[in-house]
């Protein structure tokens, strides 16, 4: 047995028939855990690396079969189903018992070859451009991701990775056809405030990957009043221009859908429609980045 056989990745979700995570038809593998804490996060259930209980309130029929939980997480009172998440050990017992699929453990440990098997299900639709996109969370937070990417490449599957850039990706470079690299903000103070980390390391990793020959698409979230200033647009343009391997820049306007997902993990919905960028802001950004759009 090689060491690779022991590697497991914590998968939040595998989604087939994705059209917006790179070229062609793709299967997107969402890995769990992210070092950033962006307040606008649209996959809040994928931030923590630990397994987590998701609760889909609208599906619950109040049958109380989850009350058999040995840790006492679930209880019912006049206001309905209450969850004491502190007590949850993510054992999955309630998920098994819930007939309505209102409860789900997010985070399944899978070996790269188990994941590959899922990815290969749609091989007939990948053609020359489609393939797999590893996303998250932050894929490189789990070192085993390189093994997964290597395995995909060996099988001739086109690979893309959606990354926040916080980790050094050098080891994975030979196995990645395209990086979808987030540039959340070019103002470091704001970056620290809004994501919890400095962007220096992210830019350094980006430049390093570029020097090593990575093919890159920059993905820039646009949040009204946060990074909708000309200075930021100009900086993004400069970064894109400095890269040898940049094949384009995508503008990702903030949306408020992450809010309902926050409720799944019992977190407050901090989404705010006022943060949605205006058409004018989107246009200004695109204009500044015209060469790359």
């Amino acid at each position: 047995m090689s060491a690779a056989a022991d590697i497991k990745l914590r998968v939040a979700e595998i989604q087939r028939f994705c059209m917006h995570d790179g070229p062609g038809i793709r299967t997107t593998v969402f890995l769990k855990g992210c070092p950033l804490r962006c307040f606008w996060c649209h996959n809040p259930e994928m931030r923590r690396q630990e397994k987590e209980l998701l609760y889909f309130k609208n599906r619950c029929i109040g049958c109380r079969l989850c009350e058999t939980c040995g840790n006492g997480v679930h209880s019912f009172d006049e206001s309905g189903h209450r969850l004491d998440r502190e007590k949850c050990k993510s054992c999955g017992e309630c998920e098994k018992n819930c007939p309505a699929s209102a409860l789900r453990i997010c985070g399944e440990d899978m070996t790269p070859s188990e994941i590959l098997k899922e990815i290969k299900k749609d091989a007939a639709f990948y053609g020359i451009s489609g393939g797999v996109t590893v996303s998250g969370g932050e894929p490189f937070m789990q070192s085993g991701v390189t093994e997964l990417l290597k395995l995909c490449k060996e099988q001739g599957i086109n690979t893309a990775v959606e990354t926040c850039g916080y980790y050094d990706v050098t080891a994975a470079l030979p196995y990645v056809d395209l990086f979808l690299w987030d540039i959340k903000d070019t103002d470091d103070e704001r970056h620290k405030k809004n994501t919890g980390v400095s962007n220096r390391r992210i830019i350094e990793n980006l430049l390093k990957a570029d020097r090593a020959g990575a093919k890159l698409r920059l993905r820039c979230i646009l949040v009204n009043g946060v990074n909708t200033d000309d200075e930021h647009y100009k900086n993004v343009f400069e970064i894109a221009s400095a890269l040898k391997g940049c094949v384009g820049v995508d503008v990702l306007p903030y949306h408020a859908y992450g809010g309902s997902k926050a409720e799944l993990i019992g977190a407050a919905d901090r989404q705010n429609k006022a943060l949605i960028p205006t058409d004018e802001q989107k246009e200004s950004f695109k204009k500044a980045l015209k060469r790359f759009i």
């Binding site: 059209m19 917006h20 070229p23 062609g24 038809i25 749609d122 007939a124 639709f125 990948y126 053609g127 451009s129 489609g130």
Partner: peptide, 16 residues
């Protein structure tokens, strides 16, 4: 991208 995806669906349908 969407156009490419639709083409890929058609090709996959034939291939399968």
């Amino acid at each position: 991208e969407g156009l490419e995806a639709l083409e890929a669906l058609l090709k996959g349908f034939v291939l399968l």
